[in-house]
Design a protein around this nucleic acid. Structure first.
Lengths: 369, 369
DNA sequence: ATGACCTCTTGAATCGGTTCAAGCATACGC
DNA sequence: GCGTATGCTTGAACCGATTCAAGAGGTCAT
């Protein structure tokens, strides 16, 4: 009661006097040492009940808010929270389907272990750097979508445990969890080839920082992002087994937006020999393509088959439901958290299995194609 | 280079020796005072370039990770982050459509102002208490869904600025942002009544902690959650204007799960006079109902009209697209952040406008009904 | 040569706790 | 009555920075 009354008074003096009362004030007022006062709150069983009660009473009378986590943090060292960082804006965590499923896995693991969760990001890279430098966390999960190198660079300087979500990096001295994009791409390609398709088009995700448009072999070899590169090679190698020459496959690098997918589709379908199957490097891109084709009256899988990649939940309810290579996204998140919280100073690299999930967006090419 | 080498050595000794090198070590090694060393990193322009360079070099050689945010935090007082707290498990932030849109608004506002974002929650309330007590934030946004009272109680003790997302609380001494649920419910009811409906059923969201099932007037009056209560009264009052007696309206309290909505639907449709319109207190519930009715071969809006509440994005792509009362969810989030970051010690209460959005799930009752 | 005025730099205080070795009673066994 | 085990308390060190009044050294004008 006294506490509440005091609190009201405090906030009443709009904007003035912040939290003036500290543990040492309580200790002094209660006539005990600061050490004892601290024990009252953190390890009550070490304190004689009467003393404990007296200190509590004093604290209430003074309006003490309880031990300030800032002080504790400094002493204890651990903030008991992990940070998830990415170079995208913060809202990415709540918008992107992949990120959302990943975060579900991450948050489950955090809940289980009682760890907190801090989202670290920013629109411009200067602020991102600052945010990473000043994040109050015990470790980082790096969502390496856009600007992975930079992210790793910045995080490394914090000298905290971290794990990159993407194995591709040439640098295998850092911990990472990911999937075998190459093998996954092979699965998708094999599936379509075995259905009888021989004419393909590829709707790619980002190979490089800023580029959009048709892509050739050299560009792929020099790609900044290994995810796209590996998936491309996976497609190529597998299709080669079925006698499909990679040179004949139109491939368009999109920016994962509806507009760029539209342009990509135009490019791919404009050739003399129209593909009967499209390999999309992400479900997101595949689903944009699905919508656009429906608008144009092209039947999927009647006229064209499409296979995606990632296995986001939305793929199941797309129209038609999307055949895709599913990543264990939530599991990746869970393991990332585990890796950080159980960090032992070593490097932890892990590749999780992919799985082809056949739905209705793929079928044998029709006779008339 | 030296820095990296050192870093590698450090982490090499698996699990041993943490970050031994502090600012004071660097200062000593560089032969400057700690104050100067601090300035080198935080206010470089105060330091003569040569000295600055020397300190930086020393820091690199020692493998100094840069000023530790923990120390800074204690001194500076502000962690420059806000916490979003709720009594649901953490994954709620990424699963629930309402929460997601809200978080988009919140994260945009945080991005804009360069504030960090911490998610605070837990499965059991003991841990929740601890997490709130120890969150390193400058203020809280309280997502009062399930256990608002408790949440407010816990947060109040931190003596940090906070804003509750829900106006309903009897306690108007706390800051809050919300909508006029009563008026919103009236809009939905009026719309259906004006279409000609006179027989209604209500699929309610939670009135109380644990209950599911048919609800009577007394239960509503004594409801724990004001959101549900206000919406119910909004429906009742408006329908009364059209001569509909509230006693004749079957109302079922769901737990917002598919199963409970199924039971709710059974209850509502089992009466002798089948309703021609259903008022659902949330889009989530409405969309479950939509699916279930489709399964049963009941046409919406042919046989039955349904109106939702909240205006989550999914409502637009439901089948049929859902008529609903839309809340400015993202805007609520943005204002919440603004309120906290601009906290002046006063109480800030705000009610944002609702809007009826008519789509295809509502129509005039058919002749045969 | 003197004093005014700059630009850096220093040293100490401070932020708010936790922890631990050492001290002091009190009770217990003999 | 004495040594010892037991149970609370204490006081001081420490966590890792930032800040600011005061000082040091140098420049410039008179």
């Amino acid at each position: 009661m006294a506490a509440r009354k005091h609190g009201v008074l405090e906030t009443g003096k709009a904007g003035m006097a912040r939290d003036l009362v500290r543990l040492s004030d309580v200790a002094k007022a209660a006539g005990v040492s600061q050490g004892t006062a601290s024990n009252v709150f953190s390890r009550p069983d070490l304190v004689r009940p009467e003393v404990r009660e007296r200190v509590h009473k004093t604290a209430r009378e003074l309006g003490y808010a309880g031990p300030d986590p800032r002080g504790r943090l400094l002493r204890a060292g651990k903030s008991n929270a992990i940070g998830v960082a990415t170079a995208e804006p913060l809202s990415y965590f709540f918008e992107d389907p992949f990120a959302r499923v990943l975060m579900q896995g991450i948050s489950e693991a955090c809940d289980e272990r009682g760890a907190g969760l801090a989202l670290v990001s920013a629109r411009n890279s200067e602020r991102l750097a600052w945010n990473i430098q000043s994040a109050l966390v015990d470790g980082f999960v790096l969502l390496c979508i856009e600007n992975g190198e930079k992210l790793v660079e910045l995080t490394r300087e914090r000298q905290l445990p971290f794990v990159a979500l993407a194995l591709g990096k040439p640098d295998d001295t850092i911990s990472a969890i990911g999937v075998d994009d190459y093998a996954g791409a092979q699965m998708a390609a094999r599936h379509l080839a075995q259905l009888g398709h021989r004419r393909f088009g590829i709707l790619a995700i980002e190979f490089d920082e800023e580029h959009e448009g048709p892509v050739n072999g050299a560009a792929i070899a020099g790609a900044t992002y290994s995810t796209a590169r590996d998936r491309a090679y996976g497609y190529f190698e597998e299709l080669a087994l079925y006698g499909v020459d990679r040179e004949t496959i139109p491939i368009y690098e999109t920016r994962s937006t509806a507009d760029s997918v539209r342009r990509g589709l135009d490019h791919i379908l404009s050739g003399s020999e129209r593909p009967t199957a499209i390999l999309a490097m992400s479900d997101r891109v595949a689903m944009f393509a699905l919508e656009l084709l429906a608008e144009r009256g092209v039947s999927v899988p009647g006229d064209i088959s499409i296979a995606g990649f990632d296995g986001v939940p939305e793929a199941a309810t797309a129209n038609p439901p999307l055949t895709t290579v599913v990543q264990p996204i939530a599991e990746i998140g869970r393991r990332a958290v585990k890796t950080i919280l159980e960090h032992d100073g070593g490097v932890h690299r892990e590749s999780l299995p992919l799985e082809l999930l056949v739905r209705n967006s793929t079928a044998a090419p029709s006779a008339r194609s």
